[in-house]
Simulated scan of single mutants.
Amino acid sequence: MAPYLRSIKSFADVNTEGGVDTLQFLEASKGLVGLFDVLGSAAFTVVQSDLTGNIAKVKARYDAAPEKSRTLESLVQNEQGEKKRTATEGLMWLLRGLSFTCKALQNAQANKSEELSVAFTKSYEGTLKKHHNFVVKGIFAVAMKACPYRADFFTKLRADQEGGEPVTQEELETDLNKWLAALSAIVQHMQDFYVEGNYDKGF
């Protein structure tokens, strides 16, 4: 068994030629959800639940119309005109949740002396906060404060999941930066796609 980031589908391995491959993207997104288990805070259950629910909405659409949903772009385009557009809305929220997580970890990478609670709080304020009501903002405020210490989190990410030799901090940094860069690029591309097509209208 390998360290966590080497045991999951990397966003760097998601095919984006001619569109973002739907199944590969969903598999990589599930890997990101599992990252919150590594964070080890029950306060993040609300984030995991939200991400998992939105992954399920997109997968349900894929299963219902696979030939029209091979890429995220085609999935969204082919759902337009329908009454509910459940997958379009689900993907929109999934992208927001992925953006929140990505920016939090990028903050942590850019500021090595900063604790995770600070990195996640900054990210929340710049991504999800504007979309949340008073109650949800309160839940997230609790979650931010419950972040583990930076050193503990990175030690867990370096660890071999079956007790073998951990990777070095340098190896982890390389893996994490590659993963985050690919995730960031996909999220930005899809959010631009939503804006250009006005696909978020009505939500």
Score class of each variant (00 low, 15 high):
L91A: 00
E17F: 13
T101H: 07
A119D: 13
A104S: 14
L98I: 14
F154K: 02
M190P: 10
K30E: 14
L75M: 15
T16L: 02
K68C: 07
V14Y: 03
T127A: 06
K68W: 11
K59P: 10
G40L: 02
S113T: 07
L75T: 07
D200E: 12
K129P: 10
R70C: 11
K178Q: 15
E162R: 09
E73T: 04
S49D: 13
V14W: 02
R96A: 04
K156Y: 10
Y199K: 01
K178F: 14
S99E: 15
A42H: 12
F44I: 00
F100K: 08
A119L: 07
Y199V: 01
Q191W: 10
L98E: 11
H132I: 08
L26F: 11
A12N: 05
L116Y: 14
D160Y: 15
F100R: 03
T127W: 12
G126H: 11
Q48L: 01
V58S: 07
N54R: 01
T52E: 15
L51S: 09
E196W: 11
Q48C: 05
F120A: 06
T121N: 09
I186C: 01
G202W: 07
T22G: 06
F11I: 03
G164D: 00
A87S: 14
K201E: 13
V76W: 11
S117A: 08
V136N: 04
L39Y: 15
F100T: 06
C147Q: 14
E27C: 01
F193W: 13
V20Y: 06
T86A: 15
E196I: 07
M1Q: 09
L51Y: 12
Q169N: 12
E114D: 07
T127L: 03
F153A: 00
S69Y: 15
P3C: 06
V58E: 09
F134N: 05
P166R: 05
V195D: 05
H131W: 13
G138C: 04
G90D: 03
V187H: 05
H132M: 06
A2H: 15
E82H: 13
K59C: 04
Y62I: 00
V167P: 12
K103F: 12
G97D: 05
F100M: 02
E79Q: 04
S7L: 08
L5D: 02
T16R: 05
L35K: 06
E73W: 14
E67Y: 09
E17I: 10
M92W: 15
G81C: 02
V14H: 00
T88G: 02
G34D: 04
R158S: 03
R6L: 14
E73H: 08
A43W: 14
T16A: 03
T168M: 02
E73A: 01
S29Y: 15
V47C: 01
D152M: 04
F120R: 06
F120T: 10
A119R: 09
S49C: 05
S74W: 13
W93K: 05
D152I: 05
K156Q: 09
G18F: 11
Y194H: 00
